[in-house]
Amino acid sequence: MSLPMESILLPGNPACQGCPHALGLRALSVLENVVLVVPAGCTTIISGVHPKASFSVPVLHVPFASAVAVASGLAAAYKQEGVEANVVVWMGDGAADIGFATISGAAVRNEDIIVVVSDNEAYMNTGIQSSGTTFWKAKTTTSPGGKSEEKKDLAGIMLMHRIPYVATASVGYLQDFVNKLRRVSEIRGFRFIHLHSPCPPGWRFDSSKTVEIARLAVKSGAWILWEYDGRFRISSPSKPYKDETKRVPLEEYIKTQGRFRGLSGEDIEEIKKKVEEQWKFVLTMEKTFK
């Protein structure tokens, strides 16, 4: 293991017990000269109550839709002033839904920034409303009968922008996430990481299970770890699960979370079909970008 001993997030911050963002931000500490750009979301709260700040790096709070546009300008300004800085946009899936236009725009312009979407699969900060990336059939306050819409594959969409670097990661596999961040620091241009972040209050499970559930998502194939830097590869934690027979049954993942309570066998079959489709997509991409 070569994970950072220190975190850019200081102890005694307002994050919930077992918060996955705190784990992700801990891994983010491997990057040097980080400047965080944070649109509204849980991380805005985690940043602390004025006059105290819980981050040891500069943080810029910005409105939802402008996050990536602000970061683009910031990166350009730092470059012009000759300041060494890694501008990182740390956003949730809510900000990624609302501010997608600026993400897409900055990706097309290939701005020199890093975007990390810490995806807890709903708008947790405002009270667990369903988002574009909410898991199929998951219960939220706006989908009390289980989400009936599709799940958006954000990393897939960013891959189609053909930016220099796209990856998915998980807070259950911090070493893998750190490896990806190290790779990111060697590349210039628009870099995108989609981080899977199981949220204890939002998904309704005990705070001690954050890492375990994140790992179950990968082991059951519900979350696939991959990276693209011109070449598409399935990352090592996900590799064994290319083989469907090696996967943990999806029920194991589903039954650990309150948001899936009361799912029928039919619903689970439907989810399995969707997961299978996702695997097909990822395996096709692996063949396409060899």
């Binding site: 102890p11 307002p14 602390g48």
Partner: peptide
């Protein structure tokens, strides 16, 4: 100067009390 928040531990108080 006062408008800029300062990095410090315990920005949410003594969070050990949550335990």
């Amino acid at each position: 100067e006062h408008l800029i928040a300062k990095s410090s531990e315990g920005s949410a108080g003594k969070t050990g009390l949550w335990r």
